[in-house]
Each structure stands twice: as structure tokens, then as C-alpha cells.
């Protein structure tokens, strides 16, 4: 397999995880247009851990996922106050704030970016992608998933049958943020260079598109959507010199 197609495959994997991060949050009825922010958080934390502290990539990804998950929970609480389009706008703002934060973080290179990560193989990326996809597919057969659907559909009725809508919605934000962070960590170590611009609004939109193109009601949809999106990009490129 040529490096070029390997790169495309890596892009599909990373995008799939991003799509899943949106999908998990969307399952509770919350649309996040800021998941590139969590991806960026994951990318920077993982890179800091592997480059500066010399930790292995796998533990670094776990740490980044937990850290980003906690930030996701913190973001999830105020998000409870907002619904629909207002939540979408607020998460969009969150994503832009994170991007702006890394632009100012001179310790991690600021606008000139950060490098020094060791390149990871496409196979390693896909171990994560398949692993997380399987976890999500198992989760879809669990009671928690039904609880998420219930909260999505009718929060009041869900509360009155004993479901804690707050915990479920905030938890979904945390889980989505963790998955996005892993996507970011893998991105950073695949491209071995990151800059704040990698994690802007367009990236968040790609995640959402991957979910929508693949059908927003099943987990593997994110994988299908990512494939479609990367192939569309590939087909739309006349010169064929690299993916977006």
C-alpha cells in the first residue's frame, strides 16, 4: 500500500473517532459543533506527554482521554442550560476558544505549532478505531443507551421514570470528549506536527458531517460517513497530492 493511500486510511480512522465523539453526545439530543476543541485538547496533551515527558503513546492516549473527558463534563454542565441551536452556537464558541487558547500557549509552540512526535502506523490507529467502535456498539445494546435515547426524546418523562437526565447528558459529553481526545492524539502522532488551525470549526463540522452522511442512528454510521467524506475529498482533488 502506498503511503498516500495509507494516509487516506489513517484520515478515515481519525475522522471516524471524531464522528463517534459527536454521535455519543448527539444520542442524548445535544449537538456539539465544538468537538474539534476536545480533539485539540487530546492532541496537545498526548504530544506533551510523549515528547516532553517521554511517556509511551498508549498510556499518553489514556491520560489525554481522561483529562479531556473531565473537561467534557465541566463543559457539559453549563451546556445543560442550553438547547438546540443555542447549544450548537455555544459549543462552536467553545471550540474557537480552545483553538485560541492553543494559539496563545507558547509553551506548546503557539501559532508555529508543535512537533517531535514519533510517527505511528496506520495499523495502530485502526486498533483504536475498531476498539472504540466495538465499545460503542456494545454500549448501544445496553440500558445506558436506552436511557440516553429516553432523555433525548422526552427529558421530563425520563426524569419521572427515575432517570437522572443531568448525569446522562453530562456523562455523554464527557465520553464524547474522551473519544475526540483519542482522535486528536492519533492525529498528532500520525502527522507528527500539530498547530491550532488543525482543530478549528471546519474539523468540528467534518465530525458532524461524518455522522450525518453515515446515518446518525447507529455507531458504524460514523465509519461509513468518514469513508464517504474522505473519498469525496479524494475525488474532488484534481492534483491528487494529499488529503485535507
Amino acid at each position: 500500500m502506498s503511503t498516500y493511500y495509507a494516509g487516506l486510511l489513517a484520515d478515515v480512522g481519525i475522522l471516524t473517532l471524531g464522528g463517534l465523539s459527536v454521535y455519543i453526545i448527539l444520542a442524548t439530543g445535544q449537538l456539539s459543533l465544538g468537538n474539534a476543541g476536545f480533539m485539540g485538547i487530546g492532541a496537545y496533551i498526548t504530544s506533551y506527554l510523549t515528547v516532553t515527558l517521554g511517556i509511551g503513546i498508549t498510556p499518553a492516549l489514556f491520560v489525554a482521554a481522561v483529562a479531556s473527558g473531565i473537561i467534557g463534563v465541566v463543559v457539559g454542565f453549563p451546556a445543560l442550560r442550553l438547547k438546540g441551536i443555542y447549544l450548537a452556537i455555544a459549543t462552536l464558541g467553545f471550540g474557537e476558544m480552545v483553538r485560541s487558547f492553543f494559539l496563545n500557549l507558547s509553551a506548546m509552540g503557539g501559532s508555529s505549532g508543535f512537533h517531535g512526535m514519533k510517527h505511528i502506523s496506520v495499523g495502530y490507529i485502526w486498533v483504536w478505531v475498531i476498539g472504540i467502535l466495538l465499545v460503542v456498539m456494545l454500549l448501544e445494546r445496553s440500558r445506558v443507551w436506552l436511557e440516553m435515547q429516553a432523555v433525548n426524546d422526552d427529558e421530563t418523562a425520563a426524569g419521572l421514570v427515575g432517570l437522572n437526565a443531568t448525569a446522562i447528558k453530562v456523562g455523554a459529553f464527557g465520553a464524547g470528549a474522551a473519544v475526540a481526545a483519542i482522535s486528536g492524539g492519533l492525529f498528532a502522532h500520525h502527522h507528527v506536527y500539530i498547530e491550532p488551525g488543525n482543530f478549528g470549526f471546519e474539523r468540528s463540522i467534518d465530525f458532524v458531517l461524518a455522522v450525518i452522511l453515515g446515518g446518525s442512528t447507529v455507531g458504524p454510521g460514523a465509519l461509513v460517513g468518514s469513508l464517504v467524506l474522505v473519498m469525496l475529498r479524494f475525488a474532488g482533488r484534481h492534483d491528487g497530492t494529499g488529503a485535507a
Binding site: 442550553l82 443555542y86 455555544a90 464558541g93 467553545f94 485560541s100 496563545n104 503557539g110
Partner: peptide, 20 residues
Amino acid sequence: SQVRDFVVYGLMILILLLRP
């Protein structure tokens, strides 16, 4: 120059939460 986006979007979120 670098903090301006941070401030603008931060203000936007605050407004959404506190003074829609």
C-alpha cells in the same frame, strides 16, 4: 492580538448562559 478570539467567544458563551 492573540487573546481577542478567546475573549469574544468567551463573552458569547457567557451571554448565552446568563443573558440570552
